[in-house]
Design a protein around this nucleic acid. Sequence first.
DNA 1: AAGAGAAGCTTGTAGATACAACTATTGTCT
DNA 2: AGACAATAGTTGTATCTACAAGCTTCTCTT
Lengths: 166, 166
Amino acid sequence: MSTEATATSPAPSNNACPANTPHGEAWGALSRTHAAVSQRLQEALAQGDFPPLPWYEVLAAVAEAPEQRMRMGDLAEALVITRGGLTKLVDRLVKAGLLERTFCEADRRVSYATLLPAGSSLLAEMRPVIVGELEIAFSANLSVEQANELRETLDGVRTTACSGVA
Amino acid sequence: MSTEATATSPAPSNNACPANTPHGEAWGALSRTHAAVSQRLQEALAQGDFPPLPWYEVLAAVAEAPEQRMRMGDLAEALVITRGGLTKLVDRLVKAGLLERTFCEADRRVSYATLLPAGSSLLAEMRPVIVGELEIAFSANLSVEQANELRETLDGVRTTACSGVA
DNA sequence: AAGAGAAGCTTGTAGATACAACTATTGTCT
DNA sequence: AGACAATAGTTGTATCTACAAGCTTCTCTT
């Protein structure tokens, strides 16, 4: 903590060191890059009359899961959103006929989000759009190896942030 | 779980390649990491009775700017949010006495978001919280050099994504 | 086996963001 | 000059997300 000198003074302009720590800069870049890429993806989807990005993320996650279904809780954790938020998000996909709610015999509390054929085929239509945009954004700056390194690095940070000992 | 059984169908289950391209994986990691770290920061701020993260980002951006003021448009671009969204965000900070709207003599259309002393001192209180959390999340995984590399990599991606030739 | 407590999901409510339409000022072309 | 287009911000509306409270169902004692 080298932060001192909070100075109550209306200090004209110095202020000098806002967040200029290397990790702070890295976070800033991470945050802005996420926003920029996310925006670009949303734009591309909207242009093709496709549903918004969160829908794609749900479909992609469920499609990868065994038997193409996931417990609501696991899905919320995978997408890093709240359970309440996911309930309503899945509601919309169900209403659109892309997903189906199924239940667990062994444990009546849990409900699954299960992929329907319509969801599967919509996913197949959306994927090229997403992949294409990502290629544009990433491949100009990163080799495949570098992309893998980046993924590992970020996963490490995420793990620490989640399990992080406050 | 994950036992087969229900297999009923010749399971087109494979689906083969959901987003399993290296760049797709990198994007997934980026997205989830952003969400996780962001969530952690919000949590830390809330715990200290501080305003939400976007307030910090506005204050930090304005504090770094010359004369501690920024044009609304530039600020929106820096934070990668829409102009309309920024107007209302700044409204809240103004109402809280942290920012002030000032105007430009030369061009009557532009308005500045200008940092007030209260904003400056709140920023000074928030910064250690943010920096501390970021250190926890990042320093366990990244050296200073690696953090700089990461920043450069991400900035490159962001630039491509923004100016990207659709 | 019965009750306290935890786990899993949903609902009600409030706050925040994006999108599109609108006003006001500036720049440009004839 | 005068009109048309472009730029800078704001406002109105709809949607989405988080937060907290609530309802089942399961688990673990005793």
